[in-house]
């Protein structure tokens, strides 16, 4: 049985199910308790599970990452929340130099099973220090997994899979997705990590998009279909380790690929995707150059119109896709 849930409700349901099922799972972070989380995602969990398992922390992002690492190392299954992805900059040492490397450095003798959830993305008028999309920083770190769901059903299934996973997982949520609705199966289920999914089939062009951009790419695809352009939309869902095969297969089929993400273009995940495609057998099928549509290389601006222009919008995707379909190699 499925029913309509918002992305935020789906995440809450996943945490609830995991906590009910496994005593080792606990949730902690800034204002996740009585307040219910800055975006209301954890609303009600404090009332259900109490202050020991739904734990408010001081504003101390380094220690949030440290607690996740230390507790995971010694038998717990922590779910940490970093209130805005921007603040993860204050957690970097523990995540990058400790959590990610411990298993390898110690000769494979330990596991560090935690999930660090964090909302990313612009579009809320919160300006440059509350709107970052920093996922690719973590993609660059062996030992971490990076998950970015785009739908409520994926958010629930992927979060449950991340909690079950024996590795540190950075779980990137998008603020503008929290209120989006979708059909979500009831009960406990996992959506495997490292499994890209074709969200819409098409023959003319592949769009590989992440997070909110998947939603926008699907909207763009609907509009393009009215012009007779059939777009295939692929959502990697897990950025690292990446399941490249469905992407390579799709590009081999369509011969054209547009990569869309919100994070700034330079050094973004799109560069990695482009390289993976260029190095694969899909290269031989390309009828046009690989194109990227991404955030402008600027900090996120406050002004509504400037902020809108900084991040790819549906019309930008439509325009870029249309141009690419007309392009010949």
């Amino acid at each position: 049985m499925s029913r309509e849930l918002t992305y935020a409700e789906a995440i809450r349901e996943a945490i609830d199910l995991a906590m009910a099922r496994d005593e080792r799972v606990f949730l902690f972070g800034e204002d996740v308790g009585v307040y219910g989380g800055a975006f209301g995602v954890t609303d009600g969990l404090y009332q259900k599970y109490g202050p020991e398992r739904v734990r408010d922390t001081p504003i101390s992002e380094a220690i949030i990452a440290g607690v996740a690492t230390g507790a995971a190392l010694t038998g717990m299954r922590p779910i940490a929340e970093i209130q805005f992805m921007d603040f993860i900059t204050l957690s970097m040492e523990q995540l990058v130099l400790q959590a990610a490397k411990l298993r390898f450095m110690l000769g494979g003798k330990v596991e560090v099973p935690f999930v660090l959830r964090t909302p990313a993305g612009a579009g809320t008028g919160a300006a440059a220090q509350h709107s970052e999309s920093l996922e690719n920083w973590f993609v660059h770190v062996p030992g971490l997994k990076v998950v970015m769901p785009s739908t409520p059903a994926d958010a629930k299934g992927l979060l449950l899979a991340a909690i079950e996973d024996p590795n540190p997982v950075i779980f990137v949520e998008h603020k503008l997705l929290y209120r989006t609705k979708g059909s979500v199966p009831e009960g406990y289920y996992t959506t495997p990590l490292s499994q890209s999914e074709v969200k819409r089939s098409g023959r003319d062009l592949t769009i590989v998009a992440t997070s909110l951009m998947v939603v926008r790419a699907l909207e763009a695809a609907t509009k393009l279909a009215e012009e007779g352009i059939e777009v295939e939309v692929v959502d990697p869902r897990t950025l690292k380790p990446l399941d490249a095969d469905p992407i390579v297969r799709s590009v081999s089929k369509t011969g054209r690929v547009l990569i869309v993400h919100e994070a700034v273009k330079t050094g973004g995940f799109g560069g990695e995707l482009a390289a993976v495609i260029a190095e694969s057998e899909a290269f031989d099928y390309l009828d046009a150059p690989i194109r990227r549509l991404a955030g402008l290389d600027i900090p996120v601006p406050y002004n509504r119109e400037l902020e809108r222009r900084m991040v790819p919008q549906v019309e930008d995707i439509v325009t870029a896709a249309r141009r690419l379909v007309r392009e010949a190699r």
Partner: peptide, 15 residues
């Protein structure tokens, strides 16, 4: 480097 983790280990023991 180990100092933040220590709090996590301590919490794990406590819980």
């Amino acid at each position: 480097g180990g100092v933040p983790m220590a709090a996590g280990v301590g919490l794990s023991i406590q819980m």
